[in-house]
Design a protein around this nucleic acid. Structure first.
Length: 902
RNA sequence: GGGAUAUUAGCUCAGUUGGUUUAGAGCGCUGCCUUGACAGGGCAGAGGUCACCGGUUCGAAUCCAGUAUAUCCCACCA
């Protein structure tokens, strides 16, 4: 049976994926083997595969397949995240296209649409992962809003509330006045905007100052503002429409210009409301005027300042961004119109000192492009301080390793400065907060309305309350509040909220998982919180290693994004290069923790590699065996055994330290250079000649071992070749995916070293052919003057074959009229009567001598340095002496050759 | 503005506690090679004062200080 001339992945990739599935090779159940577990970072349920997923999941699949082939019970749990904000936004947009406004729907109606959407598009991304070859245990596919996982979220909320770690509080949220919703920080786009900085005078009511200020007025020096003499102080603001919400004016206590204002009161212009002057070092003296208007309701920093100084909160804005009656003036006007109008009013009343152009960053809603309004609202919080301690310890003491470890500092810094986590979201898609309100606004946390009622009735005041009167909190929890449970809830959701529960067989076997592969940007959102939840509910961290991948960028260094249109469609790439080619392409340029500069040409390299393997296979598959032939390749076969094990040891060590691209590169070179370029060239019979049985079997066996090494990187190609008839008939379950990768064994160092010398000899001969334009077809003879002790006769058939040498002889004398070269200390001569350019030969030798002399100078300088000889380790000094002796010997030989040439 | 990390060949990266030929790999590049497993190939070759400036050391790509540039995280100042 012959096979196609070029590698054609489409012919077999789907076939093998199906075969693996049918044979349950991805499936894992607890048994006596050591488990190896990864939980997938769940992609958004309605998302589509992008290059970041490709990288991330390729790495996970390589790790899982490698573990599966190393005798472990490998379990990779897949699933999706409900991604409340992103998904709800998509559903809202979809409804809008249908002409439906979310506001017109009830919660239940909206959720019905959302589930419909999820059922339609959810899981597309998981099907795409199958194309990549992801060997997930699909029978374990989870979704963060599966009933059991949602219940785990609710139980967790109740548990932490009971512990006092969840509380209600006021918080400044990013309010979108157009979308009428709060949005997360991630959905706020900051843009630089040209604004105006308004300088506004506030009148200071103080009898003494009033008198002095009249002096100022008469002397009339308005351009030089002298606060000592003024009845006014001036503040600078970009938002004059919020002055009606002012609660104080703040100055720095160290600001000597304003010491006279300490303890004074001032009046808000236009509405004449009295507010105090407060002191706080928060105010920077050299910005604006050094006086800050404090508006707790409409600025986060002002809010915090207000809390500190017990100031009232005056919210003058409606949800839609218009002014309310608390503003007293301009009620009903939009905030931006109000800004212009109030500037005019201030100016007319003489309160506006000046207006400057000013650039500043303003947040805009990603979805509606409306300017974000900071707005105070009641939210649920999760206390982080207590949980951060243990989570930091796991990383500090190495129970959880970050790879690469440069992220430890960032992690530590974040954990030591952790802020409480606002967990409520003003959305419907997600787990609704299990809090229930009585008509009077009292709240209890309970799983059901009935339980809530029972809790209320503990207080006689509520003896007549009914469940119908209870209203559940409208908000849902933050998506991360469900995904932080992921490594636990995919195995046993019932232990969430029940730290004392024993847990089922799955969680006791698979937890803690081994490796987590994710992006550094969610180290805090997700990774840190999973560690917290793991500690809370299982008493140990949920994973041992966190492999942090980089961001996939294009070759110009730009982040790949839909809006830039610089991201190739992963499925197109797979179509073009094959899944194996893309996997290799991604891994070749992806060091851990560094961004990857993705260039499609690396996928081409991956495909070319696959093609190389394919054709090497075609070669050995085409060989005819002649059992009567002796084995002329024993040395070569022994050499490759050693070389294979040498490479295997390197690959093992690379895997151990998570250097996946280096493990792949070592495999690549083993196959392309050692197996194809050297081994096969050494053993392959002449055109259309048969091969001896021993060589054939060794070659086949080596090829099979190579397939095992390559399988984690290139699962489809290796499986396809694995089943070829040259390997004999295989049982149904005898598949590459479950084959056991061999462990490295000791190597024959002498043989490896001598073959290296032989390879050098062959290269030198080819080089001479190249430079003298001697065709590879023209046979030559070779003589060697051995100085190193290597018996080249052992390797004469290799040299003959690879360099087309008909005779290899030993000589004690230099041979005249020959092209010469050196390999190590050994001298080689290729007699080329008449075609030797003596001058060129001399030039070349002189050049070599020059190089060696330069080298020798460096070595001698070191050895002449007494302090080097005294201080350096003995083996270093000995090595330098070897280098010196070696260089001197070579120089001597070369100089003799030079003399011999005349 | 605060912090972290990086800067090695045209590109993407190794360089494992400072000494292993005068710094390596893959790709690309240059030259030669086409009926022989593979042109998605073979052989050979050229390419770097290790960002810059000091310092420590017998010895620095490697350690320290500073400068420049880049990326990321945090705070983004009325």
């Amino acid at each position: 049976m012959s096979i196609a001339k070029t590698y054609s992945p489409k012919d077999f990739e789907d076939k093998w994926y199906q075969y693996w599935m049918e044979n349950d090779f991805f499936k894992s159940t607890p048994d006596e083997r050591e488990p190896y577990t990864i939980v997938i970072p769940p992609p958004n349920v309605t998302g589509v595969l992008h290059m970041g997923h490709m990288l991330n999941n390729t790495i996970q699949d390589v790790l899982v397949r490698r573990a599966r082939m190393s005798g472990k019970n490998a379990c990779w749990v897949p699933g999706t995240d409900h991604a409340s904000i992103a998904t709800e936004a998509k559903v809202v947009a979809m409804l809008k296209e249908k002409g439906i406004d979310k506001k017109d729907l009830s919660r239940a109606e909206f959720l019905a649409y959302a589930y419909e959407w999820k059922d339609k598009y959810g899981g597309i991304i998981l099907d795409q992962l199958k194309k990549l070859g992801a060997s997930c245990d699909w029978s374990r596919t989870s979704f963060t809003m599966d009933p059991a996982l949602s219940e785990a979220v609710i139980d967790t909320f109740i548990h932490l509330h009971k512990k006092g770690l969840i509380y209600r509080g006021v918080r400044m949220v990013n309010w979108d006045p157009k979308g009428l919703t709060a949005v997360s920080d991630e959905e706020v786009i900051r843009k630089e905007v040209n604004q105006k900085l308004y300088y506004i005078r506030y009148e200071v009511r103080s009898e003494k100052l009033k008198v002095e200020s009249e002096k100022l007025d008469t002397e009339s020096q308005p351009s030089t503002f002298n606060p000592e003499l003024s009845t006014f102080l001036t503040i600078a603001t970009t938002r004059p429409e919020t002055i009606m919400a002012d609660a104080a004016i703040c100055v720095n206590p160290n600001d000597e210009r304003y010491t006279h204002l300490h303890g004074k009161k001032v009046f808000v212009p236009l509405i004449n409301r009295e507010i105090p002057v407060i002191l706080d070092e928060y105010v920077t003296m050299d910005f604006g005027t050094g006086c800050l208007k404090v508006t707790p309701a409409h600025d986060l920093n002002d809010y915090e300042l207000g809390q500190k100084h017990h100031l009232p909160v005056i919210d003058i804005l409606n949800d839609n961004g218009t002014l309310n009656e608390k503003a007293e003036i301009l009620v009903g006007e939009d905030r931006f119109i109000a800004r212009k109008k109030i500037a005019k009013l201030l100016d007319e009343a003489g309160y506006l000192e000046k207006v400057e152009d000013y650039k500043s960053q303003v947040g805009f809603s990603e979805r509606t492009d409306a300017a974000i309004e900071p707005k105070l609202s009641m939210q649920w919080f999760c206390d982080m301080a207590e949980m951060a301690g243990p989570a930091l310890d796991y990383v500090n003491n190495g129970d959880v390793k970050l790879i690469p470890d440069k992220f430890i500092n960032t992690y530590r810094h974040w954990m030591e400065n952790v802020k409480d986590w606002c967990i409520s979201r003003q959305l419907w898609w997600g787990q609704q907060i299990p809090a229930w309100y009585a008509p009077n606004g009292e709240v209890v946390v309970a799983k059901t309305a009935e339980e809530a009622l029972t809790k209320f009735k503990l207080n006689t005041q509520y003896s007549l309350l009914t469940t119908d009167e209870l209203k559940q909190d409208e908000d849902v929890v933050d998506t991360w509040f469900s995904s932080w449970l992921w490594p636990i809830s995919v195995f046993d959701p019932t232990v969430c909220g029940n730290p004392d529960a024993e847990g089922n067989a799955d969680i006791n076997y698979y937890y803690p998982t081994n490796d987590l592969v994710t992006a550094p940007e969610i180290l805090f959102f997700w990774v840190a919180r999973m560690i917290m939840a793991g500690h809370e509910f299982r008493g140990e961290a949920p994973f041992k290693n966190v492999y942090l991948t980089g961001i996939v960028r294009d070759k110009l260094g730009r982040k790949m994004s839909k809006s830039l249109g610089n991201s190739p469609d992963p499925l197109d790439l797979i179509e073009k290069y094959g899944a194996d080619g893309v996997r290799v392409g991604m891994l070749l340029c992806s060091p851990a923790g560094n961004d990857i500069m993705f260039d499609e040409s690396s996928c081409e390299q991956g495909r070319n590699f696959a093609n190389k393997i394919w054709n090497a296979f075609r070669l050995i598959k085409g060989w005819e065996i002649d059992e009567s032939l002796p084995n002329p390749n024993e040395t070569t076969i022994n050499w490759f055994e050693s070389r294979f094990n040498e490479a295997l040891a390197e690959i093992e060590s690379n895997f151990k330290s998570y250097r996946l691209s280096e493990a792949l590169m070592a495999s690549y070179k083993l196959v392309w250079d050692d197996y194809c370029a050297w081994y096969l060239e050494m053993v392959k019979p002449a055109y259309q000649q048969p091969i001896d049985k021993a060589t054939y079997e060794a070659s086949i066996q080596y090829f099979e071992r190579i397939l095992k090494v390559l399988h984690p990187f290139m699962p489809f190609l290796t499986e396809e070749l694995w089943h070829d008839e040259v390997f004999g008939k295989r049982e149904e379950k005898d598949c590459c995916i479950v084959a056991q990768v061999p462990s490295s064994t000791p190597t024959n160092e002498k043989l490896l070293k001598e073959i290296d010398a032989v390879k050098q000899v062959v290269s030198e001969i080819r080089n001479i052919r190249n430079s003298k334009q001697i065709s590879p077809k023209e046979a030559l003879t070779l003589a060697v003057k051995v100085n190193s002790g290597i018996d080249y006769q052992t390797y004469s058939n290799i040299i003959s074959k690879l360099a087309n040498i008909t005779e290899l002889s030993n000589t004690d004398e230099k041979i005249a009229g020959a092209a010469t070269f050196m390999a190590g200390r050994d001298e080689f001569f290729i007699p080329l009567a008449g075609s030797i350019d003596v001058e060129a030969e001399k030039e070349s030798i002189k050049k070599d001598i020059e190089y060696l002399n330069g080298f020798l100078r460096g070595v001698n300088a070191k050895l002449a340095n007494e302090r080097f000889v005294q201080n350096a380790k003995p083996e270093i000094v000995a090595n330098e002496q070897n280098k010196k002796a070696d260089a001197e010997a070579k120089i001597q030989i070369l100089e003799e050759s030079l003399t011999a040439l005349g």
